[in-house]
Amino acid sequence: MLETFLQFLFSGITAGAIYALVALGFTLIYNASHVINFAQGEFVMIGGMATVFLADAGWPIWAAAPLAVLLAVAVGVALERLAIAPAREASTVSLIVITIGASILLRGLAQLVWDRNFHTLAPFSGEEPIRVLGASILPQSLWVLGGSLLAVLALGWFFGRTLLGKAVIATAHNRLAAELMGIETRHVMTLCFALSALLGALGGVLITPITLTSYDAGVMLGLKGFSAAILGGMGSATGAVVGGLLLGVVEAMGAGFLSSAYKDAIAFVLILVVLVAVPRGLMGARGAERV
């Protein structure tokens, strides 16, 4: 019983770490611009697919992965510069449709440049499972957890200790005030898109050896990441990480103990229950509307 439980817990935390990375990407962009970027999952897909194809072309993984992440960052910057920035004045729903259009476009490009098949990637350090209290952990899971942890710590350092990071936080709090203080909020927006593309692509690179990838792998991952961000409370970085891990674990437990056919539904049932009980997510901002 304990072994099964641990087994589900490990796989849940692994998936949850990826959800957390995607959710952090949502949170970054949301805080800087109040845009919900529905192309977030596509960054994950680009990270995974580009690594796969570079590796197939003979590149070593230590070169292919960073290059794939860089490609995703370039796409993120292009998305912000070419589609989001020109539509500054558009309504929330219009912006949502723009990012949905971008996600469709990116999926189409992935189909064209790569293909419509499933792909896998060799695990970074072998496939020999590690035994822990009777449960087994894939070495790749450790890569996922370690990589995600490093990314979260680096992000914390960036926002807590660097001037640039503080400029981003200032912009998120009050755009006008930040501008008056001489912060180029335009660049801050671009930076946030770049960072969130980086996080998503990193997740894609790390998870692909476990889950396979394809041109449309980003759809579900994006939705799960959005769920995790909402679950934690949109705009809260801690909430995004907690929401991601919680979602991953609940999903793995539900799939293991209740019904694997309804694995994907469990995440959304959870989110509906939480939203009906706590309309602003677990760690979302609370406050009355001023009239």
Binding site: A87, A90, I98, S103, I104
Partner: peptide, 20 residues
Amino acid sequence: HEYETIALGAILMGIMIFLP
């Protein structure tokens, strides 16, 4: 066929950017 989704995505973005 190959370009169908690309065109769809591009048209969506274009209309929303220029005719919000």
